[in-house]
Amino acid sequence: MRAFKNFTGLVAPLDKSNVDTDQIIPKQFLKSVVRSGLGAGLFYSWRFTPQGAEIPDFVLNQERYRGASILVAGANFGCGSSREHAVWALDDYGFRAIIAPSFADIFRNNCLKNGLLPVALQAGAVRRIIDAAGARAGYRIAIDLERQTIADEQGQREAFDIEPFYKQRLLEGLDDISLTLAHGEEIAAYERRHLPPYPRL
């Protein structure tokens, strides 16, 4: 996994709650057998007409938000399907962090496995960021994972929570599987005392 580095990035506001993974990456992009290139399908039905032309109103199509690396959205972001393609698409498009009042469980897990930082803040704080990103061109936020804070240039500063275990993995870009394989002894011991698997039919 790519290690998470502190950064300052342009903020794009998506003022909707319950953004589901079917919207983040529609099914026609799930036929891929690779992880890369999914940014092209990100928010496809909101970004493009059925003929493939950009819908100018949609936030990511507005000139001032091009190159955004932080997405700020409403509550329960990433609900629905478990498709990790949603995270791959956000990442491939260039997002490095998502700020929202809350995240769906599986989506949040998928973020943490891919170095995309889910930042959960109080609804009021998220509202201020959405409003600021709408009001000021070039509105940017600095994210500091070590200190667990975000701050804008106007002085809004917020702290966020993250489990120490996941924070460590993000900062070091650690590969989960090698860490787990280091517990090979414990797994083997568990298998010896646990029930045998299925009969081979």
């Binding site: 478990s82 498709r83 995270v87 897990n109 891919n114 599987i177 787990t180 394989l181 797994i187 298998e191």
Partner: peptide, 22 residues
């Protein structure tokens, strides 16, 4: 419960998963 593809890979390799208790 449902998992993402990274977790599928993790289960294939280790038959285990890291989980925060719900």
């Amino acid at each position: 419960f449902g998992v993402g593809t990274s977790e599928v890979e993790h289960v294939l390799a280790t038959q285990c998963l890291w989980q925060v208790k719900p």
